[in-house]
Design a protein around this nucleic acid. Structure first.
Lengths: 350, 350
DNA sequence: CTGAAAGCGCTTACAG
DNA sequence: CTGAAAGCGCTTACAG
């Protein structure tokens, strides 16, 4: 179907080994005339070298593996996109395997090993605590992760989550807020705990304690953020500000606040996290902490490639985040009497 | 690093060919005792078969290629996710290559061919009119696409875009709207033209003509939808409803309507397209046409795998879409006097 | 049931 | 500068 080096060589009237050298551009090793003939033959034949055969002898497949848990997630898909591009720029194709929910992630690693990827990039926050994955990842190949990996030992490229949480807290306390709630992701996740720790510790520095009833857990979806915000306001209607750990959840939070008749930012400020493309177009435009997803994905791929070349590298790279102030935050106004809950229907149907 | 069949065979005291047979589970071909010994040896050695070597002899790499233009796009990432899963379920890994903006997509195809993927799945609407891609795709490998491919000849799995547009139009005219605008994607795209055609033709059936000033083009982003909606309302302030071709752009449209002091749905109805996870949590919850992205990705992968097996298959599969009515649409109320534009600041700053 | 041969398409020393 | 040998790790007939 593709023809082989032998076909090219035959057409050019040389041995297939010479054809190999000419095609691989070894500089002074084939005469210009012969090389030209070989190149032409390859072209006429539509020759496509076989990376499997090349990989077999050179012991390098020219691919990296990317292990993802869910790349329909807007943040993760940005990681993957940037990583694939960075790898491609260095001549590596990306073999992407998703770890199926409920199945052993070591199987995904194994699949990549069979394909002889040169290294593995992990983009799978939901598998942070999975011991099988940690063990499989430490076994043979160079690996780099954008999230924690069970048991450690895998270089990490990420952003400073604690600083991120602190940024949100400082902004809100700076605006005079003293009763601040938060909607977190699943507490099992490191990102979640780190962002929360930064947030909580920063509040503490201004003398604020964060009681349990001001913390609501959600699952990173808009639906989850919506439900959690309702729970939060149920438990403490007097909150004047909410820090939501992702913009997707924040979208649900804004929705819940509206359902409760709370005007943002007048009656309640909201700070998100991530800064997606849509974030400036939420209503009101959301103040959020910008997370450099693309840069992270790119640097993670670069780090992996360097490790594959045997270079010694940093064991951790933390990229800075920064606050983007838009219109969902405003100075605190004490508002002791919470409005009653208005139902969807009443609000929406004319 | 991985050990080879020879290592396993040596440890089990058999020839490597016998080890191969045992490991590949050929049923009656190796005695149970020998097989058990071989399996144990492989296990103890941590043997991982080399898919490159296997692929070289069996002429099948066990991978499919997925050519994507942008999988940070929420719709496309759902396609990819579902396709990867479907392929994985049938024992195929996914080699994902993104066509870099501005570079020849035939290079991406070539890269996949070098890796000897068994077939190519195309998820790249921005390359619909790229002749180089069409030519490259028709050259050798089985291919399936979720969007049009230049020059035709590639089986398509998609949804009925014209019906999608019609669904939106019928809903809006059924509510009594007679001055309906639309925000489309880039007019070069087939999806865009098909959705538009269905929309326009359906309007026509109720005697409505769609003048040029009621059509605004955008680039599929929230930012684009936002700007296009402003242009639309500038050109014709009396519109009572807008059909937006994607939920991402609709988010921007809702924003623009708010900036103009238009209440949705009382002063203007909005219908979106796609039905993403966040869509029910927009404000107001967006009426939209549900597009079966995951199902499309899955069926596309299945179709490709069947073609790779040499089966004759349908040349086109169009999955149905359906309207999901939420709260952004309401019966038309004539409102001849448009409100003045209010600026961000006035609306948002207390 | 087991083994030895041939060959998949390459690259990399090694001769000439 | 060009060619012939060896070998990467497998699978698939073919013998025994």
């Amino acid at each position: 179907m593709y023809g082989s080096l032998k076909d090219v060589a035959a057409r050019a009237g040389v041995s297939f080994q010479t054809a190999s050298k000419a095609l691989n551009g070894h500089p002074r090793v084939v005469s210009d005339r012969t090389r030209a003939r070989i190149l032409r033959a390859a072209d006429e034949l539509g020759y496509v070298p076989n990376a499997l055969a090349r990989g077999l002898v050179s012991q390098a497949s020219g691919t990296i593996g990317i292990l993802v848990d869910d790349f329909a997630d807007p943040a993760l898909s940005q990681f993957v996109k940037a990583a694939e591009r960075a790898a491609g720029a260095q001549g590596h194709a990306a073999l992407i395997v998703t770890a199926q929910r409920g199945s052993d992630p070591a199987l995904a690693v194994r699949k990549m090993e069979e394909q002889r990827v040169g290294g593995i990039l992990v983009i799978a926050p939901s598998l942070e605590e999975d011991e099988r994955l940690g063990v499989a990842l430490r076994r043979r190949l160079p690996a780099v992760s954008v999230n924690h990996v069970h048991g450690g030992g895998i270089p990490l490229v990420g952003s400073d989550h604690a600083a991120t949480g602190a940024l949100a807290a400082e902004h809100l306390t700076g605006l005079g807020h003293r009763r601040i709630g938060t909607v977190t992701g699943l507490r099992g996740r490191r990102v979640v705990r780190s962002r929360h720790r930064g947030f909580r510790d920063s509040l503490r520095q201004t003398g604020q304690h964060l009681p349990r009833r001001l913390v609501a857990e959600a699952d990173w979806t808009s639906a989850g953020g919506h439900a959690a915000t309702h729970r939060l306001l149920e438990a403490e209607p007097r909150v004047t500000a909410v820090f939501v750990q992702s913009d997707g959840m924040a979208l649900g939070a804004l929705h819940a606040l509206r359902e409760r008749g709370r005007h943002v930012p007048d009656d309640c400020s909201v700070v998100g996290c991530d800064d997606l493309e849509v974030t400036p177009y939420l209503w009101p435009p959301l103040t959020t902490v910008h997370v450099p997803f693309e840069q992270t994905g790119e640097q993670a791929a670069d780090l992996l490639l360097r490790r594959m070349r045997g270079e010694t590298t940093a064991r951790q790279i933390l990229l800075p985040t920064h606050l983007v102030v838009r219109h969902s935050t405003a100075p605190a106004r004490e508002r002791p009497v919470p409005s009653p809950i208005r139902r969807d229907k009443e609000l929406l149907q004319p």
